[in-house]
């Protein structure tokens, strides 16, 4: 297009502004977690670690961190398994009710979380499994499996379609071909879907809040603190949460982008 320098600078400036808007809350949350003032504003007060100390010494936070970790690791495992099975079925087979089958797995994220939360709460109560860590894990797996499915399916579509047949041809049964060829080929996608589903689960608060009962996760603790008053503890916990989920997301993306060099 025409070489219009002022326009170009204007657009890049605008882009920078939009990115500032998107990352400002993350940035300020981290800055204020080290700020001594009770009500965070500028000019900043002095540097302090007291909010981190408060959080560190809070047994409830530790308990919640444990719960969160359990939930997100279990969720990531189940969701990745579900996602892999669906992706593989979609890749390999065609059958009449496939759209229904795929819809069953892919639709949950299109339903608002608050609705899923209510539905899960009522359904788990009906089944008699409400208020347990397991209920959160189940709900999160349903919610995050589509992400895993999408990532792994994309990877499978990059595979030479003869690769699996080649394994059979060399004497691998369906199961060994799956283990020796499909899984190793999809490994980057499996790792990154594990990280992403763990990240989503780690941050999810609506469903957790509804179905968790007494087993609070970190986001539920945050929600409760925030509902009470302004407490810079939230910034400390929040920075920790950001750190965890950003690490997971970045690992996920890097693993997907760099081709795996060698299989041991």
């Amino acid at each position: 297009m025409s070489d219009n320098r002022p326009l170009r600078w204007f657009l890049y400036g605008y882009l920078a502004l939009v990115f500032t808007f998107i990352f400002a809350p993350i940035l300020f949350s981290v800055i204020f977690s080290f700020n001594s003032d009770r009500f965070p504003t500028i000019p900043l007060g002095s540097f302090t670690l007291k909010w981190y100390q408060t959080v560190w010494n809070d047994p409830d936070v530790w308990e919640a961190a444990r719960t969160s970790l359990t939930v997100s690791l279990s969720t990531a495992t189940i969701a990745t398994l579900l996602g892999f099975a669906t992706a593989y079925t979609d890749y390999r087979y065609s059958f009449r009710l496939k759209p229904v089958y795929l819809g069953l797995v892919l639709l949950p994220p299109t339903i608002p979380l608050i609705i899923m939360a209510l539905a899960m709460l009522a359904w788990f109560a009906k089944l008699g499994i409400s208020g347990q860590v397991m209920s959160i894990i189940i709900a999160h797996s349903v919610l995050t499996a589509p992400f895993a499915m999408a990532i792994i399916r994309l990877r499978l579509s990059q595979m030479d379609p003869s690769l699996e047949s080649a394994a059979w041809n060399l004497g691998a049964s369906q199961w060994s071909a799956l283990r020796r060829v499909i899984v190793p080929f999809c490994l980057p996608a499996i790792i990154s879907s594990f990280c992403l589903t763990a990240a989503v689960s780690f941050d999810e608060f609506a469903i957790s809040w509804f179905v968790s009962g007494l087993n609070k996760t970190i986001p539920v603790i945050i929600l409760e603190i925030v509902t009470g008053n302004i407490d810079p503890q939230v910034n400390a916990i929040g920075s920790f949460v950001f750190l965890v989920s950003m690490t997971l997301v970045i690992i996920a993306q890097v693993v997907l982008m760099t081709r795996r060099k060698k299989e041991v």
């Binding site: 030479d160 003869s162 690769l163 047949s165 080649a166 394994a167 060829v181 190793p184 080929f185 490994l187 795996r260 060698k262 299989e263």
Partner: peptide, 9 residues
């Protein structure tokens, strides 16, 4: 195979 289908990993 026509594509050789060597295992890339």
């Amino acid at each position: 195979w026509q594509s050789l289908a060597l295992f890339p990993f």
